[in-house]
């Protein structure tokens, strides 16, 4: 087999931080920066007004930073971190979003995830699912570095990015 296609690591995984991933990392980075700014501002000036909401803001900021770094690095371990943090965001935005709609006063103040990320153009709602799709799509697949197709090889994936 010739040299691996660009963007493919030796374990058959595609890099999470190149191509479309570059856009994902950028948007995650912007959101992480916005969340850090927001939470440090809230913690510094008015934490006592709504501790639950502002703790949530801080938690989401940390998770966004971790997800950004994990997606940018994309090694085997970082990929696990990315799955966990991006999955956490998906659950978080749905749970906090639903809670904030059902009972607007529950957190005292708005958070990044309130109203399903309404205050951020619903980017916090869409982003984790795009992230999960991207992690799944770039997952390690042995056929990418197999010497030759064998009878046990899985059937070709029409969505295989290398087949285009």
């Amino acid at each position: 087999m010739s040299a691996p296609a660009p963007g493919v690591t030796p374990d058959g995984a595609r890099r999470t931080g190149t191509g479309f991933g570059r856009l994902l990392v950028t948007v995650y980075g912007i959101l992480a920066f916005a969340a850090i700014g927001r939470s440090s501002y809230e913690l510094a000036t008015k934490f006592s007004e709504a501790p639950v909401a502002y703790s949530l803001s801080t938690l989401s900021a940390v998770v966004y930073v971790l997800a950004t770094v994990a997606l940018a690095k994309g090694g085997p371990r970082w990929r696990v971190v990315a799955w966990v943090t991006v999955g956490f965001e998906a659950v978080g935005v749905l749970a906090v979003g639903a809670a904030s709609v059902a009972s607007p006063d529950v957190f005292g103040e708005t958070t990044v995830w309130s109203g399903f990320g309404q205050g951020y153009g619903y980017v916090p709602l869409v982003l984790p699912f795009v992230g999960l799709w991207w992690l799944w799509r770039t997952r390690p697949r042995p056929e990418h570095h197999a010497a030759a197709p064998t009878s046990t090889a899985p059937e070709p994936n029409p969505a295989d990015p290398e087949a285009r």
């Binding site: 190149t18 191509g19 479309f20 570059r22 856009l23 950028t26 948007v27």
Partner: peptide, 15 residues
């Protein structure tokens, strides 16, 4: 500089 594909243009537009 790092991404010499159209995705760098997408990133610049978003930025």
């Amino acid at each position: 500089f790092a991404e010499r594909t159209k995705w760098s243009s997408v990133v610049l537009a978003v930025a």
